[in-house]
Design a protein around this nucleic acid. Structure first.
Length: 583
DNA sequence: TCCACTGGCACCTTTGAAACGG
DNA sequence: ACCGTTTCAAAGGTGCCAGTGG
């Protein structure tokens, strides 16, 4: 299902100017790729000598896949300021957009790449005193959805040929979103995760080599907002997003604002390009004129940073900002504080996020690397039979994006979920959901009844911080003997992780999964699940490909497969763990 | 009164079809 | 007829802002 559009999108992203891939990706050059006949350049072209290719690809398993975050430096900039993502009813793209460079895939094997966004914690936030503070307990999570890359499934060669761009992913706060956008709660913190699922036609889900891996880049975490709270984020967006170019200060009025700003003359009312601003003019005409005349003219350059209206406005609002004579010292102080916290591990002692700016949260994970591999051994291909997932959507075909799926819910909340489809509304936005019985079977928790599937069960997505893990600077392959989920196991690294020697920018989490043979055997027949009940016309009109269904169901099932002991797997490795449950 | 949220706006980039020329 | 380039309009992505409602 290679879509030209998606391909061009990826190609465009690959050619787009900007920071190169982060160090993490640079380090992700796989030995397999360096094998004779399989150089990186050769991946996108017909392979070299067959023997070499065969030898190289034989070693390329799911755990060898490396993912590098594109524009890592940009992400880090946002991260340091506390990334915010606008969510709207109609859906808003993420910026920076999620783009990755993938290496280490088998060029001939088909993979599905998908993203889900899970709560980073169970707090609701508010922006107070120029920093994010906890404002209470999180609201029930929105129905989890997956965004499957439109190129999926595609061969490893395809994915590795160019950047994989998820820039068309959209976020919404509309609980009844009919477009399949990822639904989030405003003022909550989230963590995007990338899943790579093996989906080769000759090796589909259920075959003995089925596996998937999950990659988490802590610097991509963000707080969802309906309007920007932090002016630094606004400014970063304006400066870096081409679509926001219209808000870059480039005319005379903004020049004047910048000039005023540089000399400490805050003059609300100037710089409004459309004349529709409502700033209160606090400077007299004479003082304004004085400021203007006393400020030296300057060209736009980095030396004279552009000051947008948003900065002006927010500085006026914020007492801390309004008295600041220059943007430089302001930002410098903020960054210096963050630097201090990082350098001294100060934030590692702060257990109450209320006291922390957003930027300090991710830093707790920045210095740590989580990596795990789990071989999946399945002797049955029963779950290969993946009928069309039910759809609760009656979206027009033009907007029926089959690359959106429901995201796997957390294990613990699934178990507490009410019955399936009990409160499904016609416009319920989940496009395709997974199925239940096999999921329950996979869980391996035999004493627990299969969780009745319900849309309600998706209304809660556990924070990926539900389980703590230790710092792991090395990334050994480590088989998981028991049930495992990528959804709920996203670790909150212990606070001491900030003291790790691992550079923050070099780390991300990778989780590799593979079911045990016995687990698959215990799976009940898929047919036992009433999939077709409540099937919406939209599903029939545009059913997802079996691969996408499989991806969804696979991840879905992995969610259910978590058992308590699985979280203990995080104990293995280096480092210490204070506690394993999120208090 | 506060503040999260919404819809409309202007500005901009992107995209794709049409027009044009070699 | 084909191909490559240019032009242009529509579509869509931005942040801003006044208004709304809980």
């Amino acid at each position: 299902m290679l879509q030209d559009k998606g391909l061009s999108e990826s190609e465009e992203a690959f050619r787009a100017p900007g920071p190169a891939l982060g160090e993490a990706s640079a380090a992700n050059v796989e030995p397999a790729l360096a094998a004779p006949g399989l150089s990186g350049a050769a991946l996108g072209s017909p392979p070299g000598p067959g023997a070499d290719v065969a030898a190289a690809t034989a070693e390329q398993t799911i755990e060898n896949i490396k993912v590098g975050l594109h524009e890592k430096e940009l992400w880090k900039k946002f991260h340091e300021a506390g990334t915010e993502m606008i969510i709207t009813k109609a859906g808003r793209r993420m910026f920076p957009s999620y783009k990755v460079k993938v290496t280490g895939m088998n060029p001939k094997t088909k993979y599905i790449l998908l993203i889900d966004i899970v709560p980073a914690d169970d707090h609701r936030y508010k922006f107070c005193d120029n920093k994010w503070m906890v404002a209470g307990k999180a609201e029930p999570a929105m129905p989890g959805r997956l965004y499957v890359h439109p190129d999926s499934p595609a061969t490893g060669a395809h994915w590795m040929r160019q950047l994989v761009s998820f820039q068309k992913l959209k976020l919404t706060n509309n609980h009844l979103d009919p477009f399949g956008h990822i639904i989030l709660n405003s003022m909550h913190k989230y963590q995007p995760r990338l899943h790579i699922v093996k989906a080769d036609e000759n090796n589909a889900f259920g075959s003995k080599n089925t596996a998937f891996c999950t990659h988490v880049f802590p610097e991509t975490s963000f707080i969802s907002v309906t309007s920007y709270q932090n002016h630094k984020i606004t400014q970063l967006k304006i400066e870096n997003n081409p679509f926001a170019k219209g808000f870059r200060g480039s005319d005379d009025s903004d020049l004047r604002v910048a000039r005023l700003q540089r000399w400490g003359c805050v003059a609300p009312g100037v710089g409004d390009r459309r004349g529709s601003g409502t700033w209160t003019l606090t400077l007299s005409a004479s003082s304004l004129s004085s400021c203007l005349s006393s400020c030296p003219p300057h060209p736009f350059s980095k030396e004279y940073p552009v000051i947008s209206k948003s900065i002006m406005r927010q500085r006026l609002i914020s007492p801390q900002l309004s008295g600041t004579p220059d943007v430089g010292p302001l930002l410098g102080t903020h960054q210096a504080l963050q630097h201090y916290q990082h350098e001294n591990g100060a934030h590692s002692q702060l257990t109450e996020p209320q006291d922390l700016p957003l930027s300090t949260f991710p830093a707790q994970r920045d210095s740590s690397l989580f990596y795990h591999c789990l071989k999946r051994r399945a002797d049955s291909a029963r779950h290969l039979d993946l009928p069309c997932k039910r759809s609760y959507l009656e979206a027009p075909s033009s907007v029926g994006e089959d690359h959106y799926f429901r995201s796997p819910p957390p294990y613990d909340q699934q178990m507490l979920s009410p019955s399936y489809c009990s409160e499904v509304t016609p416009r319920e936005a989940c496009m395709y959901s997974g199925s239940g019985p096999e999921i329950a079977g996979v869980s391996g928790v035999d004493d627990l009844p299969p969780p009745p599937l319900s849309c309600n069960m998706w209304t809660s997505v556990a924070p990926y911080t539900s389980y703590s893990v230790q710092t792991m600077e090395t990334v050994p392959y480590q088989p998981f003997p028991t049930h495992f989920t990528a959804t709920t196991m996203m670790p909150r690294l212990p606070t001491l992780s900030a003291q790790s020697s691992q550079p923050p920018g070099n780390t991300h989490f990778s989780v590799y999964n593979q079911l045990s043979q016995s687990q698959v055997r215990e799976r009940g027949p898929s047919a036992s699940f009433p999939r077709e009940r409540g099937l919406a016309p939209g599903c029939e009109r545009k059913p997802p490909s079996p691969h996408l269904n499989a991806a969804n169901e696979f991840l879905y099932s992995q969610t259910f497969s978590l058992s308590r002991e699985s979280s203990l797997q995080y104990h293995s490795g280096m480092g210490t763990v204070e506690n394993w449950t999120d208090g």
